[in-house]
C-alpha cells in the first residue's frame, strides 16, 4: 500500500467516526437510533448489520458504477441496498433466530436508513470498490459507536442493566422514560452537543 493510500484509509476512518460522523455530524439514521437503543445487545447487532450492509452495498455499487445510467442511478442504489438488507434478514432468521425475533421489523427498516443511501451517493459512485467498502464500513461503525453510547445510558438508567446483566443496586428505581423513544432524543442531543463542541474546539 502506498503512503498516500494509507493516509487516505486513516482519514476516511477518522472522518466517519468523528468529524463527519453520520449520526452526530450529519444527523442521519436518527430513526433507528431512537428505536433500538434501549438495549445494548440489540443495538450492537443492529449497528453491525448497518455497517455490513453499508460496506457491501457501497462496494457493489462502486463496482457497477460505470454501467449505471444516471437516470436510474437511485433506483439501482435502492435495489442493491435492499438486496443486502434482505440477505441479512434471511441469514439472521435462519442462524440467530432469537436476535432476529428481538429486532423484529428494524432489520428490514435498515433499507430506509439514510446512511446507506448517503454513502452510496456521496462516496461509492465516485471512488474505487476497496475505498467504498472501507468508507461504508467505517460509516457504519461511526453509527454503531454513537448508538452504543446512547444505548449504554438508556439501558443503564432504564433497566439498571448492561447487556442484560444487572449492575445497579436493587434500590435503584428504573427511569421508565429512558426505555421509551423520547428519551433517545435527550440522550442523543446531549451527545451531539458534546461531540460538536469538542470538534469545534479542536478546529480552533
Amino acid at each position: 500500500m502506498s503512503l498516500n493510500a494509507a493516509t487516505n484509509t486513516t482519514r476516511i476512518l477518522k472522518d466517519n467516526l468523528f468529524r463527519n460522523n453520520p449520526v452526530a455530524s450529519q444527523i442521519i439514521g436518527i430513526c433507528s437510533a431512537l428505536a433500538v437503543t434501549n438495549n445494548l445487545i440489540n443495538t450492537f447487532i443492529m449497528g453491525v448489520g448497518v455497517a455490513l450492509s453499508t460496506a457491501f452495498s457501497s462496494f457493489t455499487l462502486s463496482l457497477m458504477k460505470a454501467w449505471i445510467p444516471q437516470k436510474v442511478r437511485m433506483i439501482i442504489q435502492v435495489l442493491v441496498l435492499s438486496f443486502y438488507v434482505i440477505l441479512l434478514d434471511i441469514l439472521l432468521r435462519a442462524f440467530i433466530p432469537d436476535i432476529a425475533k428481538a429486532l423484529g421489523p428494524y432489520i428490514g427498516l435498515i433499507i430506509t436508513n439514510c446512511i446507506l443511501m448517503g454513502r452510496a451517493e456521496a462516496f461509492a459512485q465516485a471512488n474505487p470498490p476497496g475505498a467504498a467498502f472501507w468508507d461504508g464500513l467505517t460509516s457504519g461503525i461511526g453509527y454503531l459507536m454513537v448508538l452504543m453510547i446512547v444505548a449504554f445510558f438508556r439501558e443503564l438508567l432504564g433497566f439498571g442493566t448492561l447487556f442484560g446483566v444487572p449492575v445497579l443496586p436493587d434500590q435503584f428505581i428504573p427511569w421508565t422514560i429512558m426505555v421509551m423513544a423520547p428519551s433517545a432524543f435527550f440522550v442523543l442531543a446531549i451527545y451531539i452537543w458534546i461531540h460538536n463542541t469538542l470538534l469545534a474546539k479542536k478546529r480552533k
Binding site: M64, L79, I86, L87, I90
Partner: peptide
Amino acid sequence: LVGFAVLVTFIFVLVLSFVNELT
C-alpha cells in the same frame, strides 16, 4: 436503460430467492 434495469433486478432477485430457498 430498460435492459440494464431488468438485468440487474433479475440477477439480484435470483440470488435472493436462491438464498431464501436454501434457508
